[in-house]
């Protein structure tokens, strides 16, 4: 497969490449069987992009997100983050990358139940090298940023689902990461709360935050500027949101035609 710079829109074509995946595979060995969760993915993602990754369950979205978030390593291929090859990095260096450059938001929030909001948000700063002096201040700022300035002392069980996810987003943002990764961030939320979270994402994007999110809901994906569709561990389409909508329409028709 030829390596193309993958610039879907003319507007992002000018900005810096943050993530460069080249022919990445991720193979799981289950007994004697090999599962190719990612099967040759090549992607370039730029600064201040707003990307939605879509696909059916099991198509490899989470695997891709974990890889981008440096939680996992590719079986083959290369991954450059901010121009640095992460494939060759040691575990400790990857931990530092996760800490400094990546903000991860999970479907199930992953807050520590015994800690209040501030302490949850502080967590990445604890592992940052020079974090401790202004830790509290930064945590509160981050909570205010996501609209939870009045809930800073609450523990997770005293917060609603939407508020929990906001705390998680505050935690992801507290180290000012290059990219915000969100794996089905609204998966555990009702429609109204989801809309609130998406509004927050839109604001963050408008402020210049690079966002990559996984979703299987078209109306959530509609917030993004670029949509990447996956199937069986491969990227099957990668288009700006406007073109994606039309192609989606067409491909669903052609699918019907070929599969029958």
């Amino acid at each position: 497969m030829p390596i193309s710079p993958n610039s879907p829109t003319s507007s992002t074509g000018r900005t810096r490449v943050v993530i460069q995946l080249r022919d990445v595979t991720r193979v799981y060995q289950v007994g004697t069987e090999q599962i190719r969760a990612l099967d040759g993915v090549t992607l370039a993602l730029h600064e201040n992009e707003y990307i939605a990754i879509m696909g059916q369950s099991g198509s490899g979205k989470s695997t891709l997100m974990n890889l981008i978030g440096c939680l996992d390593r590719a079986t083959s291929g290369s991954y450059h983050l901010d121009g640095k090859n992460t494939t060759e990095m040691a575990d400790a260096a990857l931990a530092q990358v996760r800490n400094e450059r990546i903000g991860f938001v999970f479907q199930s929030f992953e807050l520590l139940s015994q800690l209040n909001a501030i302490r949850n948000v502080e967590l990445p700063l604890i592992y940052a090298k020079d974090g401790w002096r202004s830790r509290r201040k930064r945590a509160i700022e981050s909570l205010e940023h996501v609209g939870l300035g009045k809930r800073v002392k609450h523990k997770p069980n005293q917060l609603s689902g939407g508020e929990k996810q906001r705390v998680a987003i505050a935690r992801a943002l507290v180290c000012k990461p290059s990219i915000l990764l969100a794996d089905e961030p609204t998966g555990n939320l009702d429609t109204r709360t989801s809309a609130g979270i998406m509004k927050l994402f839109d604001t963050l994007y408008a402020e210049g935050q690079t966002i990559i999110m996984v979703t299987h809901e078209e109306n959530i994906a509609a917030h993004a500027r670029r949509v990447i569709r996956m199937r069986d561990g491969r990227v099957i389409s990668d288009l700006p949101i406007e073109q994606d909508a039309t192609s989606q329409h067409l491909s669903s028709e052609s699918d019907r035609g070929t599969e029958s």
């Binding site: 530092q96 400094e100 592992y127 180290c175």
Partner: peptide
């Protein structure tokens, strides 16, 4: 276990 996973995800090294 989940707490450990989360701590690692936000940047905790093995040593931490």
């Amino acid at each position: 276990t989940r707490e450990i996973g989360l701590r690692k995800a936000v940047g905790a090294r093995r040593s931490a």
